[in-house]
Design a protein around this nucleic acid. Structure first.
Length: 472
RNA sequence: GGCGCUGUAGCCAAGUGGCCUAAGGCGGAAGUCUGCAAAACUUCUAUUCGUCGGUUCGACUCCGACCGGCGCCUCCA
């Protein structure tokens, strides 16, 4: 049974979806005004892991991630770059999908855009007006926080306390400083849409309520996002959706911890961030995903080169085993060998137990490392293993390490390939081994060192010489 | 000020009232292999869980105090 820590109840709960075999989940996506940073990537990756694990468990997952493609930051960027807001959004939307793909994050079922749901958003605001939760002041429409009794139930804040602590950003039009914009009146030169309240554009929070409702229904299973969205964003979504639909909005709220640099939150405003695409220039998606998987999703995650490097090194254990598998004859000889005493089921069981426990990926990763070690031992201790053994190893890694966590790529063995490059390397290895037979070590070492400089490492073993390419 | 999180080996990081004299990764050490090397593989690497008290037959795990770190309360994954 999968358990999930629910921010709403502050407890770990059994996960029971509304429909038995289906999970509907919504994750807050990016505002497309810039490249996203590696801290944002954590949310995308961990959401992806959650989605993959739900599928592993047999659920049919309907996964929505929105794109905020109209907003103050986009308009600001457009003015800076002297292009339209639409062009900014298009540019960074394309970049967003490119980066996701490089991170091996699977696309959501649908990535709805705010600007393509203006109609739904307007309907939603009208419903709020009708229910008495919204008020219009000169074309600006606000949500009346005081009308929603349960305001603060997600973040554990109380209205009066919030009021006291709220930083004064005086907006004369608001009844309460905590009221937030549902519809913003267009200023001169800003993009706008026609509405019952005049020309304007939607506020930030309303798009998620409108789009989740359209694509997932009034009540759905999981809503996820970064810790900093708890308040006010998710709190406001609840206020909007529950006030409009008069129904519970979301059953399970999941929030991801931050990425820290030197024990400090990575953020655009602090300037201590790396874009995902820059990190990807130096490290593979698998390295990044392993690093993220080695910390529980709710806790803070320390991020630096040394840790990325150690994740990359850790990955080599998997890669070496994958290389071993890829060197086996294809197809494997049938029915030969003695079955070792190797209990694959217990590894599946342990992996699932870890993941079921509020997505304890560090524990799950530990199970995978144990698995690799035990497989290596078994291979070393048994001369004549049956083909099923290797097939089972591959299947296990394929389902868990690759399928759920995405920390390995079974199709991409370094040893594989069919290019001329491969043939040249093999020719050099032959020449070198001839030199070694003649004890011409000066020449053989020269070849080895030369290849090394090109990023190709030779490995001599009993069964011959193999090579691998240096990796990210 | 309000609310919340957190302190485990050189670094990162799970975990639990007795199976913990504490997973896993990196780093370090030794061994196997090797012409040498690298790599690989194997083994070892915290008598101890921020400090001090308390509860308990028993705590690192529960409670209290103290010290330290972080976050939200404002756009933010």
């Amino acid at each position: 049974m999968l358990t999930i820590y629910n921010t709403l109840t502050r407890k770990k709960e059994d996960f029971v979806p509304i429909n038995p075999n289906e999970v509907r989940m919504y994750v807050c996506g990016p505002t497309v005004y810039d490249y996203f940073h590696i801290g944002n990537a954590r949310s995308f990756i961990m959401s992806d892991v959650l989605r993959r694990y739900l599928e592993y468990k047999g659920f049919n997952v309907k996964y929505i991630m929105n794109l905020t493609d109209i907003d103050d930051k986009i308009i600001k960027k457009a003015n800076e770059e002297k292009i339209s807001a639409k062009q900014v959004a298009e540019k960074y939307t394309a970049a967003f999908f490119e980066d996701l793909e490089k991170l091996k994050v699977r696309r959501a079922s649908i990535h709805p855009k705010a600007t393509e749901h203006i109609h739904e958003i307007i309907d939603f605001i009208e419903q709020l007006e009708k229910n008495g939760f919204a008020y219009n002041v000169n074309g600006n429409v606000f949500y009346d926080v005081a009308k929603f009794n349960e305001y603060g139930k997600l973040s554990g804040k109380k209205l009066d306390e919030l009021d006291a602590g709220a930083r004064v950003d005086v907006n004369e039009e608001k009844k309460n400083p905590l009221d937030f914009s549902l519809w913003k009146k267009a200023k001169e030169g800003e993009p706008f849409w026609d509405s019952p309240w005049g020309k304007g554009r939607p506020g930030w929070h309303i798009e998620c309520s409108a789009m989740s409702c359209k694509h997932l229904g009034e009540t759905f299973d999981i809503h996820a996002g970064g810790n900093d969205l708890i308040f006010p964003h998710h709190e406001n979504e609840i206020a909007q959706s529950e006030a409009a639909n008069k129904k519970k909005f979301v059953n399970y709220w999941i929030h991801f911890g931050f990425l820290n640099i030197n024990n400090e939150k990575m953020s655009k405003s602090l300037g201590n961030f790396f874009t995902a695409r820059d990190v990807l220039k130096l490290y593979s998606a698998e390295s990044i995903r392993l690093l993220f998987s080695q910390t529980h999703y709710r806790g803070p995650l320390e991020f630096n080169d040394e840790l990325l490097e150690s994740a990359k090194r850790g990955l080599e254990k998997f890669d070496n085993l994958i290389d071993k598998l890829s060197l086996l004859p294809n197809p494997l000889p049938k029915g030969e060998g003695i079955s070792p005493n190797f209990d694959f089921q217990s590894y599946y069981k342990n992996f699932e137990a870890a993941m079921d426990d509020d997505l304890n990926t560090p524990q799950a990763v530990a199970v995978l490392f144990d698995f690799v070690r035990d497989v290596n031992k078994t291979i070393a201790e048994n001369e004549n293993l049956p083909p099923e053994f290797y097939l089972n190893v591959k299947e296990f890694l394929s389902k868990t390490a690759q399928g759920v966590l995405g920390i390995i790529d079974l199709e991409k063995s370094d040893i594989q390939g069919g290019s001329i490059e491969k043939e040249l390397i093999e020719l050099l290895i032959h020449l070198r081994n001839d030199a070694r037979k003649e004890k011409n070590f000066a020449l053989s070492d020269k070849i080895r060192d030369g290849l090394n400089e090109l990023g190709i490492e030779l490995k001599d073993s009993k069964d011959g010489t193999t090579y691998k390419r240096a990796k990210k």
